[in-house]
Design a protein around this nucleic acid. Structure first.
Lengths: 342, 342
DNA sequence: TTGTATGCGTTATCAC
DNA sequence: GTGATAACGCATACAA
């Protein structure tokens, strides 16, 4: 039983207790096979007795590596990010790395501060949800020399490494999907962050390409919510154009559209189709079940972890940018319009 | 413009560039007012030029404090934890603390390893979602001398500090709530983790106290899901006892119960009432909107942050245990049974 | 107002 | 197989 264990025991206390030098204790942790079995046992007993855990601040300082990976996300309250972080954390943990999570809460100014603070921790790698647009941030990051992964938004001029999917392709695919089902008067509800805007522009371009009416696009500051979806839907009905399908930048907003429609006696998808983004866990639980663009957060996290580990080990990277794609999960909220009547 | 900034510049490089000593640079960061304005400006220019950010590993080692708070949660994919972590992170960030998040993924064995690894980072504080039951973990933590907050589960014998609510009270309240609405044949679906089990036992005790039939309790390994809720509901209908209300340990499971009921033509709440736990953001978006036990994760995070900051600053704690309570948010899934017919 | 010496806890290196 | 030494980057204490 660990008896008198003192707070934050150091390698020195263990050494004195075991009657060996500092290096012997260090080796007992890092290269146990180098020690005589009897010595090893004595050192281990001493470590247990004082509850010794190596101080990573000292290790980091000495080795110039922290075994820390920083991940910066807008919010934790989004399924894609959760799944990504969970997988990233789990995969990196196998190799002894920990993940330091920072949240910007969608405040652009916060990102610079956060990255500066984060760089102070000298992480071995930094993952950023989304692409880095801010000039200052870009130069800070590249100057730091830290491996950087931009995740979830595959842009051409990524800083270092990237994994994710093209938001432009998502926008175009969403539009094509609705068009193929016969919907023509489209609306888009989404956040006004960079990714969403690029998605929406691609959506509109695709509509134009197909000779459809210009989509009615409404962009608001994120995060989007159920209440927001309801409100936007109410506004659309009150004074918006006639539409037969709505593409939402988040599933929560889409859920709000479903609720508001139901309360007003508008049948989905008969009167109007609704589609979300993210394929959140609750998408299938809504009524009607929500069609959504599925983004595999876990896959993103897995690929990102692999890239980091390759890089840390000095292995050559197969690719510096990985497209994990996306899929559209069709559910009840966008069933095809009735076939031409007999 | 930061020109030739080198990776991980040190205080020495800045000093040489500015033609001052190391201490002058250090003071430029920590006590700028002590420097001659002209010197300060020169140092700042040098810092910008090389992109200097202090190495926290060195600072931590020197000061024996890391400005790091570790938070250990079962998963990020739960609204209560998200909200708690978001608030905790935001509040601590104001005072220059960062939050290191660990996830156990509900694997009990993982908790010990995770805490050991975490202790290596010498966090200034540790927050644990849930109470600490494991003997080894308890002694590791108390031996480390780190301030510990057990969050979200208010037990009597907390290790150090605690904030949350009584799961026993939640169970009893859920039962009382359903009983008051006239439901008598109750079922419970939940995870089989410690917190859930204590909640369920209290639920059953309350039913007994009220002279109601013994509730049909089904406990499964977490995490619970929509699919799981559907399956449990299907099983209940196939071979379970007749029930008129179901209390679920999570909103996702409750959502599954709603879906399965709808598919089978069972009307909620007319034929059966459904109630969840957590008041997740999507609870209001379900159909029918889900009655749920609301747990204010943000409030928990806020109180926890306050406790940590008081402790770090050496201020006396008003209370070592704070009950943030809970509320039952009534929605459509548990409307009262029809009044006695005329 | 600015500089020098010292040590935080650990490990690479070299010596025995 | 084990030990002594130096150094990682920074801030406290003290000196100038």
């Amino acid at each position: 039983m660990p008896a008198a264990s003192s707070p934050n025991a150091t390698i020195r206390q263990v050494a004195e207790l075991a009657g060996v030098s500092l290096m012997t204790v260090s080796r007992a942790v890092k290269q146990p096979q180098q020690l005589a079995p009897e010595t090893l046992e004595r050192v281990r007993a001493a470590m247990d007795e004082v509850g010794y855990v190596p101080n990573m601040a000292a290790v980091s300082l000495r080795l110039a590596q922290t075994r820390l990976v920083a991940a910066i996300v807008p919010t934790l309250a989004t399924h894609v990010f959760d799944a990504m972080l969970a997988k990233l954390t789990a995969e990196l943990a196998r190799e002894g790395y920990e993940v330091l999570i920072g949240q910007t809460q969608y405040q652009p100014g916060r990102e610079v501060d956060l990255i500066r603070t984060t760089l102070g921790r000298r992480p071995d790698g930094i993952l950023l949800a989304g692409s880095v647009r801010d000039k200052a941030v870009r130069s800070m990051l590249s100057a730091s020399g830290v491996p950087v992964i931009e995740a979830g938004d595959l842009v051409r001029n990524h800083l270092d490494m990237a994994v994710g999917m093209s938001n432009e392709k998502i926008g175009a695919a969403a539009c094509s999907y609705l068009a193929a089902l016969g919907y023509r008067r489209l609306a888009v509800f989404s956040g006004n962050d960079d990714r969403a805007q690029r998605r929406n522009r691609a959506f509109a371009r695709e509509a134009q390409r197909r000779g459809m009416p210009v989509p009615h696009v409404v962009e608001v500051p994120p995060p989007t919510s159920h209440a927001l979806g309801r409100e936007l839907m109410a506004q659309l009905l009150a004074r918006g154009p006639q539409v037969d399908a709505i593409y939402c930048g988040s599933d929560m907003a889409a859920a709000g559209v479903l609720t508001e429609s139901r309360e007003r006696g508008i049948a989905v998808p008969r009167d109007i189709a609704v589609m979300g983004t993210g394929d959140t866990d609750f998408a299938a639980a809504l009524f009607p079940a929500l069609t959504s663009v599925r983004i595999d957060g876990a896959r993103i996290g897995e690929v990102a972890a692999g890239m980091f580990l390759d890089r840390f080990a000095g292995r050559p990277l197969p690719r510096r940018a990985v497209d994990v794609g996306f899929t559209i999960v069709q559910r009840e909220s966008t069933a095809a319009p009735a076939a031409t009547a007999p």
